[in-house]
Simulated scan of single mutants.
Amino acid sequence: MENSDTDPRLLVLAPGDNIAVARLEIADGTVLQVAGRSVTLQRAMGFGHKLALRDIAAGERIVKYGAPIGSATVAIALGDYVHSHNVASNYMASTVPVEAAL
Rank of each mutant, 00 (worst) to 15 (best):
A35I: 09
D5C: 02
S84F: 09
A57R: 11
Q33P: 00
L102K: 10
G16S: 14
R61K: 12
D55W: 15
L24N: 04
K64M: 13
R61F: 07
R23Y: 06
S38C: 07
L102M: 04
P15F: 00
A100T: 00
L32M: 12
L53H: 13
A100M: 07
N86Y: 06
S4G: 00
G70R: 06
H83Q: 08
I19F: 11
E99Y: 02
L10G: 07
S38G: 01
R9V: 07
V63D: 12
I56E: 06
A58H: 02
Y81C: 10
D28H: 04
A52E: 11
I62V: 15
L10D: 08
V87E: 10
A67Q: 13
A35Y: 02
L102W: 09
D5H: 11
T40S: 08
L32S: 05
P15T: 08
A57M: 05
V63E: 09
G46L: 09
H49I: 14
S4L: 06
F47N: 01
N3I: 04
S84E: 05
V31D: 11
N18R: 13
I69S: 06
G29M: 12
H83G: 12
S84W: 00
I76M: 05
H49N: 11
A77S: 15
V63A: 14
A44L: 06
L51G: 05
G46S: 12
N3S: 08
R54A: 15
D7M: 02
R9K: 13
I19P: 01
V34N: 08
L102Q: 07
S71Y: 03
V87M: 12
L102S: 03
A93V: 11
A72Y: 01
A58P: 09
D80A: 15
F47L: 14
V39P: 00
G70C: 01
V74G: 02
Y91G: 02
R23T: 15
E99N: 06
M45D: 01
S89L: 03
L13G: 10
A44Q: 03
P68M: 03
H83W: 06
R54Q: 15
R61A: 14
A88Y: 00
L53M: 12
I26L: 11
A58Q: 13
Y81G: 00
A72G: 05
S4D: 09
T95Q: 06
Y65V: 04
Q33S: 14
R37Q: 11
H85V: 08
R23P: 03
D17V: 10
T73Q: 00
P68R: 02
I69H: 04
A72R: 01
V82P: 07
R61T: 06
T6D: 07
A67W: 00
Q42E: 12
E25I: 03
A72I: 07
E60A: 15
A101N: 01
V31H: 10
L51Y: 02
M1V: 15
L53A: 10
L13H: 07
R37V: 00
G59N: 03
N3V: 11
S4P: 05
